[in-house]
Design a protein around this nucleic acid. Structure first.
Lengths: 247, 247
DNA sequence: CGAATACTTGATTACCTTCAATACGCGTGG
DNA sequence: CCACGCGTATTGAAGGTAATCAAGTATTCG
């Protein structure tokens, strides 16, 4: 194993250990998983709605998203994925994908056969618990997004999403200080927020002139975290992150 | 055990068997679960956001919903629950509830201690799989609702929700023919659809005059299923129901 | 049978979408 | 190295969808 491959496996293991405490044997079993790493370009479709995949994908580097498309062709992004996430874990238990999965930036992913995961889950139920919890955390984010899209207006909804992204990126070490790389277009933000790209632009302008955040040159800078949290009605509890989530 | 209690346990067992195939021993273990049944009135709050419950609730009769409330007091209903559902199953793996849970009609529920569920899951991993799948099906509904709320307008969004409710109620035997009891107020529909009750009213009127459905006297009647499906851009695949879902 | 809820409808307003046109930034190839 | 082209960002204007406010009617339930 190259050092990079070791680091990749460690990333997966670290994620699982944030969900349950593992024994040495369980740790070893995770590190023994057959992980085939791949590099994917921007806008690469990893899985499509209706697929019945036979492997899971662990995001090791880069940003990705899950989405669905309506009959009239408009897209709703359902989740953003950060390194450490396993975006199509549901495929392990539910046969067919009911959503698409695509990269937003160049990504490195680890591909793990369902069979291998099932064996590990069978041999080590606590690992199954960890994966189950991972899917439950996804569901918790879906719930909170529904509140945003359904009940918050553009300003608060956008603030809320930016809060979530900062906290999640910070949790995996990708946000240092008050900012982070966030190479997401306004079109993509709009598809996630359930609003038009034009209105995302106006809303970001509002957030900027209110002194809360700037999002320019693929970089997000938070100027007033407290005000952003207030504007977004953001309570990180739903993310169910380990100890003190931020700050 | 009274006949009613037997029927209640059977309802839970039937749900699990729709998710995985169980051996006789596993079936017996499920039927042996300590289930305490309770009758609850309308608008009873079963669990609140922030709770750390020590038992799960299985809905045996009646309708319930999960919801979240924003800082400004508006409510977003996140899911409707029909008999057979276990609405707070997430609490088994994730400690704290990030949403409230309340009855919409008088309900009978079965209360099962987490400890007992954990024992059964440990002894019979396939039962754990079934429960995991149940939470994944919840998540799939969340995803589809996000698409509705984010990308469909009132007419289609409402049609989509009514399609889902009819299919789910039919799957548990509560919709016969072209209609079903649906004692849900327009306020509740609005909170689920992310729209105002007034606009729900106007939209239902539109659906009625288009000859698709009527919702009066707590009863839903579908007059043109094909047109309703078309209007709602409804594809039942996301519900991951057993074989042929409808008809 | 009466009070409380829920439903219905109209008028007004707010928010957001769509359309359109321009400017910017970035990567490619001359 | 610069010109070109494409995707993204920005801004203005017009229009549409849905929210809010308000007032009256119907239903349900105690």
């Amino acid at each position: 194993l190259t050092p990079t491959q070791q680091a990749d496996r460690l990333r997966i293991l670290t994620r699982l250990e944030s969900l349950v405490t593992l024994s040495d044997e369980e740790r070893a079993a995770v590190l023994r998983l057959p992980v085939q790493t791949m590099d994917l370009p921007t806008d690469h479709e990893i899985a499509s709605e209706g697929d019945t995949p036979s492997r899971c994908v662990a995001l090791l580097d880069g940003l990705a998203c899950s989405y669905k498309v309506t009959a009239d062709g408009s897209r709703q992004i359902i989740a953003f994925h950060v390194p450490g996430d396993i975006p199509d874990l549901q495929g392990l238990q539910i046969g067919t994908m009911d959503n698409g999965l695509a990269t937003l930036t160049p990504c490195r992913v680890g591909v793990i056969p369902h069979e291998a995961l099932r064996e590990v889950c069978h041999a080590h139920p606590r690992i199954a618990d960890a994966l189950w919890r991972e899917t439950l955390k996804d569901a918790a984010r879906f719930r909170e997004w529904m509140v945003s899209v359904g009940r918050r207006k553009a300003f608060g909804r956008t603030a809320h999403l930016l809060c979530e992204l900062v906290v999640r990126l910070r949790a995996v070490g990708l946000a240092k200080g008050d900012g982070c790389e966030l190479p997401i277009t306004q079109i993509e933000l709009g598809d996630a927020l359930g609003m038009s790209a034009v209105h995302v632009n106006r809303t970001l302008k509002e957030l900027r002139s209110a002194g809360l955040v700037t999002h320019q040159h693929r970089t997000l800078v938070v100027h007033d975290w407290a005000a952003l949290v207030e504007a977004g009605d953001f309570d990180p509890a739903y993310l169910h992150l380990p100890p003190p989530p931020v700050r």
